[in-house]
Amino acid sequence: MDQRNQTGGSTTSFHQVLIIIFGSLFFAGGGNDPLAERVQDAVPDNDRGAKAVAEAAAIDEARGQDVTAVIAWHEEFFKVIGQPDAGETVVRAKIDEVIDQLEALERHQLSLRSDLRGHLEPSEWSEIFD
């Protein structure tokens, strides 16, 4: 989950509405430390461990990109529906577009999870996420 507003004590972002309301998931969880650091602590110092750390780093990087992407979609969403001639049809079409984008993003997040899982033993997985 994106934690930036829970930990920063900063004010709200208008665009976070979409993140919350449409429920973009930003998988990974397990605390605020980067996933790559937690994986590094849990795996042996060998080739498999190095691959796992690299996959975790890819998840960390993707999560930041996903938050940025969702905020950009929200901005675009309001620019479109704020037009003088916008009506219910425009709003529905734009939301459909956002739903498809969110789904693609989440599929990508799950694909990255699958890549990481392929390099970890069950006990290591539990150490990282429990």
Binding site: Q6, Q16, I20
Partner: peptide, 14 residues
């Protein structure tokens, strides 16, 4: 703003 606010709280404030 407070550290214990949830993201849902943030969205509803917005």
């Amino acid at each position: 703003s407070h550290k214990t606010r949830t993201l849902e709280d943030v969205a509803l404030e917005s």
